[in-house]
């Protein structure tokens, strides 16, 4: 049964105005194609920045569902880049909200092992090298660094994703890069060799 046929036109008009009919902008097939191209980079972002693969699974699902439900979901006409940026923006906010919750552990309280050896099967050389350094960064620094250096976003794009000012991004990113570069320099030579 289709609710659109039952609900009065006035209500459905308002519903469409509020984004309930977002499938007008992205249908099932278009979404499947978009998901195929965007899900892996999004999972990588969530998993490496949060340091928790299970949390990344949950947040990725929620990000896509909210993306589909959102009123301002960019249409395909606006381009996939805009859609992906919007998706990362939702994921960034979800991740921040998760860490802000009282029952969630503070990012500073998470032990370093959480980032480096939580999942042995998924342990990789790059993670073994980058993980300890990432563990000593704040959540925001991790987000900024990943968006800039893993995703290759510009300062303006990072500003859109994080909601920070474009001018602030430059300074924050400069500090974060300097900090993590120093931490990576301190890594044992063996780890550097692995990576």
């Amino acid at each position: 049964m289709n609710w659109e046929h039952i609900l009065p036109k006035q209500w459905m008009g308002e519903a469409q105005r509020d984004g309930i009919a977002a499938d007008v902008t992205m249908d099932n097939d278009a979404f499947a194609a978009f998901y195929e191209r965007s899900a892996r980079p999004l999972w990588a972002y969530l998993a490496r920045v949060s340091g928790d693969a299970a949390l990344a699974d949950d947040l990725m699902q929620e990000s896509f569902v909210r993306f589909l439900c959102a009123a301002q979901t960019p249409s395909l006409a606006e381009g996939e880049v805009a859609s992906r940026r919007y998706l990362f923006r939702i994921a960034t906010n979800l991740m921040r909200d998760h860490w802000r919750r009282p029952n969630a552990a503070s990012i500073e309280e998470v032990p370093e092992e959480f980032f480096t050896a939580r999942d042995d099967s998924a342990q990789s050389d790059s993670q073994a090298w980058l993980g300890p350094a990432m563990a000593r960064m704040t959540l925001r620094e991790r987000q900024l660094l990943w968006l800039a250096h893993a995703e290759g976003y510009s300062h303006r794009e990072i500003a859109e994703v994080t909601g920070l000012g474009s001018a602030s991004i430059r300074l924050l990113l400069f500090r974060a890069r300097r900090k993590i570069a120093a931490l990576l320099r301190e890594q044992p030579a063996v780890m550097r060799g692995q990576a």
Partner: peptide, 16 residues
């Protein structure tokens, strides 16, 4: 370091 980490993580992604 971040490009390598991204390549690794993208391969490990568990998709629904």
């Amino acid at each position: 370091a971040f490009r390598d980490a991204r390549s690794e993580a993208v391969r490990q992604a568990r998709l629904q």
